[in-house]
Structure formats: C-alpha cells, structure tokens
Design a binder for these strands. Structure first.
Length: 417
RNA sequence: GUGGCCGUAGCUCAGUCGGUUAGAGCGCCAGGUUGUGGCCCUGGAGGUCGGGGGUUCGAGUCCCCUCGGUCACCCCA
C-alpha cells in the first residue's frame, strides 16, 4: 500500500483519454481569438491576499482555500479561481484598455471531492477590462455560448440576472435583510445566522426551507437604479438580437461577492443539479479598484473543463478520436533502417513511429496495427538491396506496393490525402 | 466538516458454510507462421486478496482499527 498515487481530489489524464481535453482548449482558443482575446498566463499560486479580495464571506475564501506557508514564511494559496489573478496582473502591468485576455489552467479548492468536483480542476475563461458598455457583457456571454455550441453541447440553458451596483444594491440589500429577518425561523441552519453577513447568499441556497422563503423574497431586478436598469435592458436586448435564448433567474447571485450588474450561468440540463454549472461569470466593476487599481469596469466568465466533459458524456457527444500517426515503420534488418527512415519522414512533417528492440515481424505489425497508423512502411534486407521501401495499407485489406526509397515521402503524403 | 457504499491480476469482476496450490474474461508477451497486423489455436508472465492487529487447527471470507477510492449534503467549475 506504500504505492504512490495522485493526491486526493486530483487525477491523471492518460494519453488515451486526453483527446477531449485537447479539443476543449483548442476549440476555446479559436472562439475567443475570433473576438480579439489574447492568452494570459499567471502564477498557479499567489499571495493569499490576492484571493481574499474575492470576498471574506464567500465559501471560496472561508473554507475552500488551498493555502499554506512557504519556506520563506509567506502565506500563499493555490488559486481557487483566476479572475483575481488576472485583475492583479492587470493592476501590476497597467495595460491600456480596452484589454481582453483568455486563460486555461488549473484551479484548486480544498474540499471533499465528488462527481464533477475536484481539488484540482480546470477552467478556461476570458476577462475584458475597461468598458462598462452592456454590449461587452453581450459579447462575453455570446462567446461562451458559441463555445459550448462548437463543442457540441446543446442541452444547456443560459441563466441571467442583474445584481445592481453601489447605487442600488445597498437599499435592496436592506430590503432583503428585513424580509429574511421577518422569516428568520424558517431558514436552514447554515443561513439563519448569516443574514447580516451575506444576505444575497441565502438566495441561492438549495435547501427547501430556504427555497420557500426566497421564492417570495424581494428581487434585485425589481429594485435597480435607472442606470442599472438601462444597462440590463440593453444586455437582454443584445442577447435577443443575437438569438441567444436565456432565462431570467432573479435568485442567481453566484458564489463570488465581487459581481455587479450582470451575472450569468450556463447550466447543463443533461446533468445532475449538483454539478450542472457548466460555467458562469458576470460583471465586476468594483473589483479592480478594490484591489488597489484604477477604477476600471470589467466583465468575464470561467467555464469548467470537467463539467464540459461531463456534459459531453451525458449528451453522448463523443469527439471523434484523431489518429496519432500517419505511418509506422517495420524493420526486419535490425533497426538502423527504421531509425533513418523515421527521421526522414518526420523531417518532412509526417507523424511516424516504429518498434524498438528488433522485435519479431509479427510483433512489429501488431504494434503497427495498434498504433492506428494508416500505413506500414517495411524495410529489410530485400528492400535495402533493391533500394526500395514496401508500403502497406493497414486499413484496407492486403495491398502492399514497393516504392523507390527516395520517393517514399511523396508516396506516403499522396496516400494520406 | 458529516454520512452511505466499495477495496481480489494492468482493466472488469467471480470466489459457496471459514478449508488445502486464489480463478475467469479482456489486455500484455511468446509460439503456431525464419519477412507481414486484425480472426483463430496453444502456452506464458502477472497477486502482500489495500494495510495492521485479533479470533481459529486453518482467514480473500469473521471481528476491530487504519489507509484509500467513490457518491451524497452545502456550495460551486
């Protein structure tokens, strides 16, 4: 049992299963590149202060932070999400706005793992800084929508809400606090004592007790100031104009305290509710300033890679596996000929593998077959003497032809078309 | 943090009432075929039965502890 294994809540993606992972990232990169987003890489860990700005009353900060003291006694944390890191980078480097960035990478939250939820998980996302234009909210939401469509996910609904801003949130918040206090005894244990702490969070509690209370709670959308109302109207108008269906969800507050105005979530309808959040995001006009930067509006989203893969499975959308190899070289003369031929073919841009250890012909052909290569290229004493390479089609029956050695690259290329 | 379920070969699993040398299928390797894959046949390698302790003449099987996995609750990705 002293066997080494990955830590709890983490996993390996072996080459045989990594195809869908690759397609998530390449598809996402293509979609966001079409709108001018550039790739950003930030550290996997940051000073814990970076993430504490997410909000002291959020679960992410209160109980899910994967933090520790390093050898220099610095209190650091593995990033639980990437928006805070991107904001920190924005403030540190002060790029000119509008500024658009996308990312892909690991996130960490220290909690008990279960289906679709891990201690190390993966997200792709975008962040756009420097504009409060509601059309930018629409662009961001639309890019996520387009990405899911490109992945082949259709059983999904888009939930949207507006949380207001500094002008209208406080008065609404008080309204909500008063309401919740009036029905204090009916709430679930966890939220009964947190009304003053973070009343909005009560809205997305899934427990029946809280649900029956929040069903008739005052809604932020009914108490928006004129600016927020106009902003939200323009967002919904834009989504309609782009033919993106959405559902108004007045209780959608999401787990992070920094959101203002627009919030949204892509919910997979083919998945269990415990892990149906495929992705989500919103506007966070106050976060940059709160973290010490210039007053800068921003909006973005993060999409969960594991959830995307779950949804693909649930919808039975299996991305077609791609062949890893064009050709497999079989050598009956010891290996030197295979060494030289694979090098030539690879230099010509072909994907080629071979056997090692001078294995038997049967074993080499078996390996060629398992590799999925389209062609087997055979070199041995006979071919060496004649200056040729035998070329065999592994996917159709039988056919084997002899090609002059110097013409092999051209012949292989021709046959792959 | 709390709770349910599960740990036997690389994988999926069987293993009766506690009984002698722990099995199957798939996969892997080799041979059948001195230079030809898939199908077939034959053979082989591969196990601390998660770990420790206990009961017993005897434990994969029963008991205790422990480690790991998995699922759920809250919340999220």
């Amino acid at each position: 049992m002293a066997e080494l294994r990955h830590p709890p809540g983490t996993f390996d993606v072996m080459p045989a299963e990594s195809g869908p992972w690759q397609s998530v990232v390449t598809t996402f990169a293509g979609v966001v590149a079409s709108a001018g987003y550039g790739l950003i890489l930030t550290p996997t860990f940051e000073d814990i202060g970076v993430f504490q700005r997410i909000g002291e009353s959020t679960d992410v900060v209160r109980k899910e932070m994967y933090d520790f003291l390093d050898k220099g006694q610095r209190h650091v944390a593995l990033r639980p999400e990437q928006t805070a890191s991107v904001v920190r980078a924005f403030i540190q480097h002060r790029p000119t706005t509008p500024w658009k960035a996308w990312y892909a990478g690991s996130q960490f939250r220290f909690e008990r793992p279960q289906a679709g939820r891990y201690r190390e998980f993966h997200q792709v996302g975008i962040e756009a800084f420097g504009s409060a234009d509601p059309d930018l909210d629409v662009e961001v939401v639309a890019l996520g929508w387009e990405f899911y469509r490109a992945m082949g996910i259709h059983r999904m609904e888009l939930l949207v809400n507006s949380l207001g801003d500094a002008a209208c949130r406080p008065s609404y918040r008080q309204l909500l606090v008063d309401y919740l206090n009036s029905r204090h005894d009916e709430l679930c244990d966890e939220h009964r004592d947190r009304i003053a702490d973070n009343p909005l969070r009560v809205l997305d509690c899934k427990r029946p007790e809280c649900r029956s209370v929040t069903a008739s709670a005052p809604r932020q959308v009914d108490h928006l100031c004129a600016d927020c109302a106009a902003h939200f109207a323009r967002v919904t108008e834009g989504l309609a104009a782009l033919s993106i269906p959405f559902t108004m969800q007045p209780t959608l507050v999401r787990g992070l305290d920094y959101y203002t105005r627009t919030t949204f979530e892509y919910a997979g309808t083919a998945l269990e509710s415990a892990q149906n959040a495929l992705g989500g995001g919103g506007r966070y006009d106050g976060l940059v300033a709160a973290m010490g930067g210039p007053d800068t509006p921003a909006v973005g989203f993060a999409l969960g890679v594991e959830r995307i893969l779950l949804a693909l499975t649930a919808e039975a959308v299996t991305p077609r596996p791609v062949a890893l190899l064009d050709a497999f070289v079989v050598d009956f003369s010891g290996g030197a000929a295979a060494r030289d031929l694979t090098a030539r073919l690879r230099a010509a841009g072909l994907r080629v593998d071979r056997s090692f250890d001078a294995r038997s012909p049967k074993a080499q052909f078996k390996a060629a077959d398992r590799s999925g290569a389209r062609l087997a290229l055979i070199v041995g004493p006979d071919e060496a003497a004649a200056g040729t390479v035998a070329l065999k089609d592994l996917q159709n029956v039988g056919e084997q032809v002899s090609v002059p050695s110097e013409l092999v690259v051209g012949e292989v290329t021709r046959r792959l078309i």
